[in-house]
Design a protein around this nucleic acid. Structure first.
Lengths: 109, 109
DNA sequence: CGCGCAGATATAAATAACTTAGGTATGGCA
DNA sequence: TGCCATACCTAAGTTATTTATATCTGCGCG
């Protein structure tokens, strides 16, 4: 089918929201974090990352502020909003339901 | 913004291949089976189903034959080819890797 | 001191997979 | 006879991605 992507279509929002749920992070750090935490299974390219962040911001699920990183550079920090937290819950539930459904098909074919 | 779809993008091929891995089935039956086995979590609409079947056939992963169903109707039965079985293995491995990666992110944020 | 690289942002064009919305045909049953 | 469930199919539109390109800046190194 398509190229061996390192992302499951439609799960990026979930991944981003979850990744900033503990504390605000900037885009670059979010991508690195997802890669690292997933044990390198997932990879977030910049072409997917930034559009996704802008989408989330437009939906009001994250808010952005320019700030300095620990290394002294300017970066845009994204923070989960209240609506974003609610959305995260929804997406988590959706993911559980659907991925579990796929698990059933795989096991019971 | 992930409309509440009843399918995870990119997993339909896997679901179909797996569903016909035990015995050939026709399109309609494949869709019903996926819905049922997934405990109604997954839903395969016809607009997604038939293009997917044709894709799989073009790739040489399934072969199709017209035959009669148990209820005496003509239907197109899809059977997994050898290449299809190999592809199924690939997609299973890919799914395990990626969904596990998402699981990690969800748990370790 | 200049240069390149890693960190950091961003967008545009192309593509793939889906949703939505049609449409056709047939056998069985009320 | 007329409708419903079964069974097939396609086209147009939407969306999230991939691939490719572009820009800016601190820092380390020769």
């Amino acid at each position: 089918m398509s190229r061996p992507s390192d992302l499951i279509q439609g799960t990026l929002d979930l991944l981003i929201l979850k990744t900033i749920s503990t504390e605000p992070k900037h885009g670059w750090a979010i991508a690195k974090r997802i890669q690292h935490v997933s044990d390198e299974a997932l990879q977030v390219t910049q072409g997917a990352l930034y559009p996704a962040l802008h989408r989330l911001e437009q939906q009001g699920w994250v808010s952005a502020k320019w700030r300095k990183t620990e290394t002294g550079r300017e970066a845009k920090f994204y923070q989960l909003t209240k609506a974003g937290a609610a959305q995260l819950e929804k997406e988590l539930a959706q993911w559980e339901r659907l991925s579990n459904g796929i698990g059933l098909v795989i096991r019971l074919a």
